[in-house]
Design a protein around this nucleic acid. Structure first.
Length: 983
RNA sequence: GCCUGGGUGGUGGAAUUGGUAGACACGCAGGACUUAAAAUCCUGUGGCACUAAUAUGCCGUGCGGGUUCAAGUCCCGCCCCGGGUACCA
């Protein structure tokens, strides 16, 4: 009986569908029984047009193994899959073709589902969702309304309904309120009553968690939209790589900064990799320091600076403002005006990318004004420079060149004084560089002289607070998240503007606000977002809707909650279901979402917790980041001759010098035959590499020549040669006693291989469908797991796949007799077989629990190899093995299970437990002798009492042998694994 | 610069808490079966030395030190590769 994966897989899939095998039961369902829950979640994909490549399923397979394992343990497992369906590629495609993005998206989703099902992933498809469905984004809009109608109370440290704030304003204005806000003015209750509706609205806007304001944003002109900070990488857009500039514009934002501290502290409570937690900590960027106020000489203006090093206050040599700082104009004196204006203009025109690219280029301009040092009363020159960022801290810094490398560079170039105020514990050359470490002793600093840095910081803060020049503050790098996008394919923001242009949220009963149809997916001629094209799209037929849409991350910030109750149309999910499923126990996905999705999702979860909808603050209890699967790109070695590029391709293993001579010879011969003339001199200018698709473009019947050398062939030949390749002339030639030829057997054209990111544009994509077609889904699953640890980046090189395939065939064959009939022995297993079984169960369980699926697969291979050696086809051994293997290879397991006469799906069988007795006896390894002590390595079974282990050790035949029959004086347990036996 | 992950045979990788380094697989070599091939099965496979063979000895986890009876693993000082992030005061 041959192992034919396709037959097996079709049968199993049908069976699972009929049995609704992977359905998760909600507490609100009739058939619910009090069962322990387990929630395994994959980061849902954006359904791109290219379909899945072998990199995507890596995480899906791992989470599926874990989900199946949890089901075996008798848990009610929620394992859903959906689609993050709003996004730029579908919209760009719509712009080009005029086709509604919905059509593209639906088509892509259908393909994704088909591909996912082939892999045998145990999703509960009844719960699937798409973020672009109105029934889903209705609730995304609902959450936005809640954010709009909420403010953050710093006193209770949670979000509260906006009404409580209005009440407060009515009673006592905003003077005593501790709120997260960007408000600048103070007002009394009386003032508040006197404000117009518009003024009240504007003030409340400074407190809402979803707010509209004018601020600097990342504007991407090519995409025609603003972007959030995490969507910009190296000064260009993450999607498409288009330039981004900072621009002052009105837009919607979410006040995520209100949650900065909670987002930071919450990291202590989750089981995530240290690198992701660290990335979030850096992104939030909490830093404690002081805000110090400087009076400008002969003026009323004051400048506030933020510093983490108040201990260096006596080393100030100048102040620097960001060029955008609003005070710049006022403090610039007449003499400097022209230069300052020119510099401001220069800074403004530099793109974000330019600015980041030449960090080393130091520029700046003196304003002509001086500030008064609050402690020494000395005059300090005020400069502007674009190395100071307007949006961080106060947009102004006190420069201490001796102890800050940026200030040092600036001071050197502009000839400003460098005054040392910290004595480093090591020798230091202050002429060469600044000493930035927060470690040393204060000198030249009046009342803090002799103090160590940390004490000095405290002391200076106390002093300036006492004198009223400043205070202790905490700053965050985290910025509020820009929430509006000037695009079509996203959730409409549920806001309308009344006749006074005051924004209001639509009534919750009017949700969803569905995306209107428009004729073109481009901005209007006047530069309005595409939604401005919608005809007759008005709230209650009279009010203008907000015409920007939500960003891509809106829908993904709460989808894990919707899976808990996906069909609910009364609430986003019923409380009873939310409470039951609670946190995601295991979340699997790529680490590229560290500072985007994972932060936003935590923010929304905390917000919904504050409003009382959830009873947990952290959405994802445990996070596993799967590594990237890299492609193995093939390059063709290309020879350029006499300026004509790429007409010769040589195999990667060919010697270049010899190849050159061969090419020269060949050209001569060919030309002699064709034209009866000889070329004496040809120059080979360059031998380089090109992607393997290039030959298609360059093949020319007359002068394409492939040369292959016989030799040690390490690389694989090109798999799919371009069709024109066959037309290429091949040559047999002997040269310098080396034989170069292409024979039937050696007809291999070798490529140069390089590992890089898998991508359609690099021609290195491997499609899972092809692998499954050839070897079956179980081989594919096991092979992906076998490749290496889940978290690591690794190239997808298929050479090892036959090992896994042969393993499954071997496993399958073990239970068929010579006639190909399924045959199981009812004989009782012997001790050796039982021992083997129980050791394997222990190992494989451990492997699954610590996500080491590559060793899990290995341990199966060892098990099956040994069973084969023992010729063991006993029923009592096979049955637990089928269950054991089913998370890894569910199709094969299901099929073998049905052959043993069981009708139930494997998914519902309890996972086998190992028996410790069998393990102990076989756990003695080589003894080590030292100083009369004999040491054994003993693999202790879990939870076995020491006395019991001691007994077994002494009674054991091997122990006796090693001890030479003398009685040991005592047994000492050293750590957990080692036993010292003292003679 | 800072933060992070990594460096182990020809290759992918094992070694869970410091306890036989190289599991398992690929590749390679040899053998069985076969007219032959494929498939399958068996044997060998880190390096060096020695041996008819078994056995044995020495070296060996990027480099240099250290702790320990024992180090791929822990500590100190470096080198190289990947990823993230950055005038964040």
């Amino acid at each position: 009986m041959e192992y034919v994966p396709k037959d097996i897989e079709d049968k199993s899939k049908e069976k699972w569908n009929q049995a609704n095998a992977y359905k998760a039961v909600n507490p609100s369902d009739k058939e619910f029984s009090q069962q322990e829950k387990y929630y395994v979640l994959d980061m849902f994909p954006y359904p791109s047009g290219a379909g899945l490549h072998v990199g995507h399923p890596l995480g899906y397979i791992a989470s599926d193994i874990y989900a199946r394992y949890q089901r075996h343990l008798g848990k009610n497992v929620l394992h859903p899959m959906g689609f993050d369906a709003f996004g730029l590629p579908a919209e760009q495609y719509a712009i080009q073709t005029g086709q509604h993005p919905c059509i593209t998206t639906e088509k892509n989703i259908a393909r994704y589902i088909e591909q996912l099902n082939k892999i045998g992933l145990s999703y509960d498809w009844n719960r699937t969702l798409k973020t672009c469905d109105a029934s889903y984004y209705k609730w995304t809009q609902w959450i936005f309304i809640q954010l709009f109608n909420t403010w953050y109370n710093k006193k209770s440290n949670k979000a509260e309904p906006i009404n409580t704030l209005i009440q407060h304003f009515e009673q006592s204005g905003n003077i005593n309120i501790q709120a997260e806000s960007n408000i600048k003015q103070l007002f009394t209750a009386k003032d508040w009553q006197g404000f117009s509706e518009k003024e009240k609205s504007d003030i409340l806007m400074c407190y809402r968690l979803a707010y509209h304001s004018e601020a600097y944003v990342n504007w991407c002109a090519v995409l025609g939209t603003v972007l959030a900070n995490d969507e910009v990488k190296d000064g260009v857009s993450e999607r498409g790589g288009y330039p981004v500039e900072r621009k002052l514009m009105p837009q919607w934002s979410l006040r995520i900064t209100a949650y900065a501290d909670r987002l930071l502290n919450g990291l202590e409570t989750v089981n995530w990799s240290e690198s992701i937690k660290e990335a979030q900590r850096n992104w939030i960027g909490k830093s404690e320091g002081a805000e110090i106020e400087f009076v400008v000489k002969n003026q009323t203006e004051k400048i506030k600076v933020f510093t983490t090093r108040p201990d260096t206050i006596f080393g100030i040599s100048y102040l620097v403002l960001a060029p955008e700082h609003p005070i710049v104009n006022a403090i610039t004196n007449a003499e400097q005006k022209t230069q300052v204006d020119a510099y401001v203009q220069y800074a403004k025109n530099r793109s974000e990318r330019e600015r980041q690219a030449d960090v080393n280029k130091v520029t700046g301009q003196f304003t002509g004004s001086y500030a008064i040092h609050p402690l020494t009363k000395q005059e300090i020159p005020i400069w502007i420079a674009d190395y100071v960022l307007y949006h961080y801290g106060t947009g102004a810094v006190m420069a201490v060149p001796a102890h800050d490398s940026r200030d040092f560079k600036f001071a050197k170039i502009f000839g400003l004084p460098i005054k040392q105020v910290i004595q480093p514990p090591i020798e230091w050359d202050f002429l060469q560089q600044s000493y930035d470490e927060k470690n040393g002793t204060c000198i030249n600093s009046e009342f803090i002289n002799g103090l160590p840095t940390k004490t000095a910081i405290q002391k200076v803060i106390e002093e300036i607070e006492k004198r009223g020049y400043g205070k202790c503050v905490t700053n965050y790098k985290l910025r509020d998240a820009v929430f509006g996008r000037q695009r079509y394919w996203g959730e409409p923001i549920p806001i309308f503007y009344d006749e006074n242009n005051i924004p209001h949220t639509v009534d919750e009963t009017d949700l969803p606000i569905t995306l209107p149809d428009i004729d073109k997916y481009l901005p209007t001629e006047t530069g309005e977002p595409p939604l401005a094209r919608a005809k007759n799209w008005k709230y209650k037929n009279q009010y203008e809707y907000e015409n920007t849409t939500m960003p891509g991350w809106a829908g993904s910030s709460w989808y894990f909650l919707r899976y808990m109750d996906p069909q609910n149309n009364k609430v986003f999910a019923d409380k009873i279901n939310l409470d039951y499923w609670n946190q995601v126990d295991l979340y699997v996905g790529g680490s590229e979402h560290a500072t985007g999705h994972l932060l936003y999702a935590r923010f929304w979860t905390m917000f919904l917790y504050d409003l009382g909808y959830l009873n947990f603050q952290e959405p994802f209890k445990k996070l596993i980041n799967q590594g990237m699967i890299l492609g193995n790109s093939a390059f063709v070695k290309v020879v350029t001759i006499d300026g004509i590029a790429n007409i010769f391709y040589i195999s990667d293993d060919a010697d270049e010098d010899i190849a050159k001579k061969i090419i020269q010879d060949t050209i001569n011969r060919t030309l002699r035959a064709q034209h009866n003339k000889n070329i004496d001199e040809i120059t080979i200018e360059r031998i380089g590499f090109a992607y393997r698709h290039r030959p298609i473009d360059y093949v020319d019947d007359n002068n394409f020549i492939a040369i292959t050398a016989v030799g040690d062939i390490e690389n694989k030949p090109i798999k799919h040669l371009p069709s024109d390749f066959n037309k290429a002339q091949t040559i047999n030639i002997d040269y310098n006693n080396s034989y170069y030829y292409i024979s039937e057997k050696e007809n291999k054209f070798l490529c140069h291989r390089e590992v890089e990111k898998m991508s359609k544009s690099k021609f290195n994509v491997v499609n899972p469908d092809d692998i499954i077609e050839k070897y079956g889904a179980d081989t594919f699953r096991m092979f992906e797991m076998f490749l290496g640890p889940i978290e690591m980046h690794k190239p997808f090189i298929t050479s090892g796949i036959t090992g896994v395939y042969n393993f499954l065939r071997k496993f399958f064959r073990l239970y068929f007799n010579e006639e190909g009939v399924f045959y199981l022995s009812n004989e009782k297993p012997n001790e050796e077989e039982l021992k083997l079984l129980h050791r394997s169960i222990k190992k494989i369980r451990d492997d699954i629990e610590r996500f080491s699926f590559n060793t899990g697969v290995s341990n199966f291979m060892i098990l099956v190899n040994k069973l084969q050696e023992l010729k063991c086809n006993k029923k009592e051994i096979l049955e637990p093995i089928i269950i054991l293997i089913s998370p890894f290879a569910p199709f094969t397991a299901e099929y073998l299970w049905s052959l043993t006469g069981h009708n139930q799906c494997v998914v519902h069988q309890p996972y086998p437990h190992y028996n410790a007795e069998y393990l102990v006896d076989n756990s003695f390894n080589y003894p080590v002798s030292f100083n009369g002590k004999t040491r054994f390595n003993i693999e202790l079974p879990l939870n076995m009492p020491k006395e019991q282990v001691e007994q077994i050790v002494l009674a054991n035949e091997q122990t006796k042998k090693y001890l030479n029959n003398s009685n040991p004086k005592k047994i000492i347990f050293v750590e957990k694994k080692i036993i010292n036996i003292v003679l």
